[in-house]
């Protein structure tokens, strides 16, 4: 990894500066909510698999707030950031990680399976690539009913080698479903670098030539760029009812999951590489932009950060003080009650 060129900033700030500050705030909240999670995991209060989004925040924050409330979202197992950006209450997300009944999936899903139908957030999925066919189905339903919503689906570079993903991309194009596929290319599928898992690492080519889907690559560390591309993609999908594919180049700072320790990561990446990417931190980059146009002072920044920490603390507090699911929950929801 590391082939990403540092791009020139667009000359003018492309959107309202108040909006900009709110997106900055969103990135901060996502990060502050995730930072304590590995520690909490170590304390034994979170179990299962835990995949952090830290480093990739500009993608969720650049794209998701552009959606309408009736649009749909689906994600893989690295789903906290997408959920927070969609407005899912961090309290209910952290409570889910704690396995509490107040969690957004009643404590039955855990970190990888965040759902909030109230926000059309149709879940996080743990089987690599498994979410992509589902998204095509959601897109199909939108079209079937003649709606003008879109369905956004997030997944990783590793998913590009699952057969189901390719079957689904072909169908999406064939049936012209209003889906926005967002490939978050963080350079690795677990410990396997993109170059070691894909014969053709140009995913845009694979998808545009392979399936005839409009495709675009973006610097996923730069919120302004993400937003620009996302705006274009969303407008395209709504207008034509056809799919669009975005590859966002990014980097995950943490290990793949909790058990991918710093020591373990040495089998596939160096500390220098991690440090190099941190130099292009999405929150820093965007903060700098906002400061340049005078939209963010250092006291604003402190205030926003304090607020983000408060939100994270309150969410943890809420989770700590929430009850476990009652035991009869074990048999509930295996089937949906008739009616």
């Amino acid at each position: 990894m590391g082939k990403l060129a540092v791009r020139e900033s667009p000359d003018s700030f492309p959107f309202d500066s108040r909006e900009g500050v709110s997106l900055y705030r969103l990135m901060r909240i996502i990060r502050r909510c995730e930072e304590p999670l590995n520690r909490i995991y170590r304390e034994g209060k979170i179990g299962g698999y835990l995949h952090l989004y830290i480093g990739q925040e500009a993608i969720a924050a650049g794209l998701i707030p552009l959606l309408r409330s009736d649009d749909y979202l689906l994600s893989a197992y690295r789903d906290h950031g997408h959920a927070i950006a969609r407005g899912v209450d961090p309290k209910r997300i952290i409570a889910e990680l704690y396995g509490r009944v107040t969690g957004c999936s009643r404590g039955k899903g855990g970190s990888m399976h965040i759902y909030d139908t109230g926000r059309n957030f149709l879940g996080g999925y743990g089987i690599v690539g498994g979410v992509v066919p589902l998204a095509v189905g959601v897109g199909f339903a939108i079209k079937y009913r003649g709606g003008d919503q879109i369905c956004v689906c997030f997944f990783g570079d590793g998913a590009m080698n699952q057969g189901a993903v390719h079957e689904a991309l072909n169908m999406a194009s064939l049936f012209k479903v209003p889906c926005l596929f967002v490939l978050e290319n963080n350079g690795y599928a677990m410990g396997t670098a993109v170059e070691r898992h894909s014969a053709v690492t140009d995913f845009i080519q694979r998808v545009s030539y392979g399936y005839g889907i409009a495709s675009e690559r973006v610097d996923g560390m730069d919120l302004v760029e993400v937003r620009e591309v996302a705006e274009r993609a969303i407008a395209y999908i709504r207008k034509r009812s056809a799919p669009y594919f975005i590859e966002a180049e990014c980097y995950r700072y943490a290990g793949h999951g909790f058990s991918d320790t710093a020591q373990q990561q040495k089998t596939y990446r160096s500390d220098e590489e991690i440090e190099r990417w941190k130099q292009r931190d999405p929150i820093e980059i965007f903060g700098r932009r906002l400061r340049e146009i005078g939209a963010l002072s250092s006291s604003d920044e402190e205030e926003i950060d304090a607020e983000a920490r408060r939100i994270a603390d309150e969410a943890i507090d809420y989770a700590e003080n929430s009850p476990e699911p009652p035991m009869d929950e074990l048999y509930e929801h295996v089937f949906t009650e008739a009616g």
């Binding site: 179990g47 396995g99 039955k108 476990e324 699911p325 929950e329 074990l330 295996v334």
Partner: peptide, 12 residues
């Protein structure tokens, strides 16, 4: 095992 998908919460 009971005939349920595996729940996440520790107690369940």
């Amino acid at each position: 095992g009971p005939d349920v998908p595996m729940p996440y919460a520790k107690n369940l």
